[in-house]
Design a binder for these strands. Structure first.
Lengths: 207, 207, 207, 207
DNA sequence: AATGAATGAGATTTCATTCAT
DNA sequence: CATGAATGAAATCTCATTCAT
């Protein structure tokens, strides 16, 4: 994206320096959560952090590097949390169904506290209006899918169409995202076959 | 989020005007794909578009409105494509399994060409490095999940652990994202129950 | 010295733009003459020029490029003047001695008006104190040379030792400079031989 | 030029202190040679010198004083070298011609090693590009002078025009420089007369 | 003596926007 | 309609210098 240096300028050996770095990252995080991306500036960061602009530039060679540090630390934290969640999953005396339920439960419990910050990162360019727009579109999609699959109603295990299609749609979106941005080892064809199996297993009455 | 006007200044009745608007949007799109959010400026847009800054302000009251137009048009296009894909799905003489396969196929075919732009919108602040970082973390997660579910191996219909966990992980992520940003009508508890069903149906050998 | 771009940003096609560029260069020249290198800043330039800082950056991508333009234009002017001086030298009905006298006269008449600016460029880093220091040193040198050549006094055509040694010293310095920075086609040995001839011809009584 | 104090803060009595001072001066010299004037800063000096900023300010009251020390020491060295060169000139049993040849030889031997630093001081604001430009101009001048003096060819003792004009041109420039910046006791008219004699003695066949 | 964290004025530069032509 | 010169507030960033440890 750019050829600028993005690693912090010093390793902050001294304790005071370390504190300062943390203060800056914390201030940045707050501003990001509160006001979002677009209005973030080094001036506002140092004002919030209560340090001088010179101090900021002692530790970060440029604005980008602050964001870099922040994202890295955020992702690290999330990943740590997630890993720990999985590793501390106590599956003893649980059958498969229960194990999965527990996993899902934990998964949905993750980073509730980071929700705002996360949303800034994932949706930064998307305004509230666009969000509404997306949701509207999803509703149209839901309707279209409902219509399309109505003929199969007899074979489908569906209590609540909206909810079911929500599940299918976002599962699809998530996996599609994974295919686009992560580099799965499997081929697209294999993955599509698996996804079909996933959805069929979910929808078909004789699971 | 702000009280600025965000609709294009003119409806671009004349053809030339329409062209100009499209040129500007196109230039913006390119810059967004190439350099990302942060370095986008009206000056760079007009330079790329080959029109004068004055012209830009003939058609857009401010910078935000360009973005707005662009996002709207992108989302519209995506939604249109998606809707059309679904509506033109020819399910006659297809059984449920085939229907689902077709749906998945179409779904994965979407916006290959919009990948870059999409990634800018979804991950705007996240650099390529962070993406790598995320993927690495996902691999760790995959490993942890594998270890956790190994005891159930006998009950699981798994040909390829990595692929299977990829599916589960990103389906989970997608639905979690849906819960966070779209506002599903169902409660979280209901959704979690459904997700468990989804995954159980997929993993359990007696599907 | 740096890998920054140093050519003016636009060609200033329009007349107003051209004027602006000239105004900026002129203001820079003045400031350079008056206050010298070290305190030169874009802020001061635009203040003096009576244009806004934005305007400056429309035409010059960075501070360095202003200096570059200025030096280029200064050197160009000097070279033009010098060339013209030589080319308009009217040597008709002049013998060699007269021709040389005319040449020297013209040469010393050059850029009297650019003296200040020139000195800023040639001596920018040297303060007034250092200048004094240099002159003192030159006087010591003069004395040493005088002592050294006193034994030859009988053979030397010298009216005024200080003046003569001044000539010899700065002729030497000038040619040495030429050898260091311009790349003469002759070898150093050849040049040294010529210089000896030059000085011998000047000093020896039987010229 | 400014009323700042410019002498080193301490006389560096202790040996360690002396080392530190030298280290700082050396680092400054290197940076000056490598990157030139404009980008020189105390921070970069201490980084290069491997001492802390605090230490620098133990020995130098301000940035200017470092430069002052450096220039003083450079000029001192150059002057010392020059003086010594002249004073150790062993002219016994040498006739005038030989004496001059020896002088020239020694003179040209000076500060080959200080070339870079010297050029920074003499041409501080002039980039490599400008140097090229100057040289090009000198070639044009050479050509013009050649044309001008061609009519006198019969009276001129010239083996090689380029070399001869090189000598004349840079002798002229050197003396002109001396007139501008050193303050000779002689009047300009006197000096011009001498210069004409110098050149005439050099060029005229009956020297 | 030496360190290096911190400062903040001020330098450089960007950028959305206006307006005369 | 289109142009692009001009604006200036605000952003990014530098750098000489101080001071607590």
């Amino acid at each position: 994206m750019s050829n600028k240096k993005i690693s912090p300028r010093k390793n902050g050996l001294q304790d005071r320096a370390k504190d300062t770095i943390e203060t800056i990252i914390e201030a940045t995080t707050q501003l990001l959560e509160e006001k979002g991306w677009m209005s973030l500036s080094t001036n506002k960061i140092v004002e919030r952090a209560g340090v001088s602009i010179g101090t900021l530039y002692q530790y970060f060679p440029n604005k980008e590097s602050i964001l870099h540090s922040l994202v890295e630390s955020l992702f690290n934290t999330l990943a740590q949390e997630m890993l720990q969640t999985i590793e501390t999953l106590d599956l003893r005396e649980k059958n498969l169904k229960e194990a999965i339920e527990l996993l899902v439960d934990k998964f949905f419990y993750r980073h509730e506290n980071k929700k705002n910050l996360l949303s800034q990162f994932l949706m930064s360019s998307v305004s509230v209006e666009h969000l509404k727009f997306m949701i509207q579109n999803d509703q149209k999609l839901t309707q279209a899918l409902k219509n399309k699959f109505l003929p199969y109603a007899g074979e489908l295990r569906i209590e609540n169409w909206d909810r079911t299609i929500f599940i299918v749609l976002y599962a699809l979106k998530g996996i599609h995202f994974g295919v686009l941005f992560s580099k799965p080892k499997a081929t697209q064809e294999e993955i599509k076959k698996e996804v079909a199996t996933l959805i069929y297993g979910y929808l078909n009455i004789k699971h």
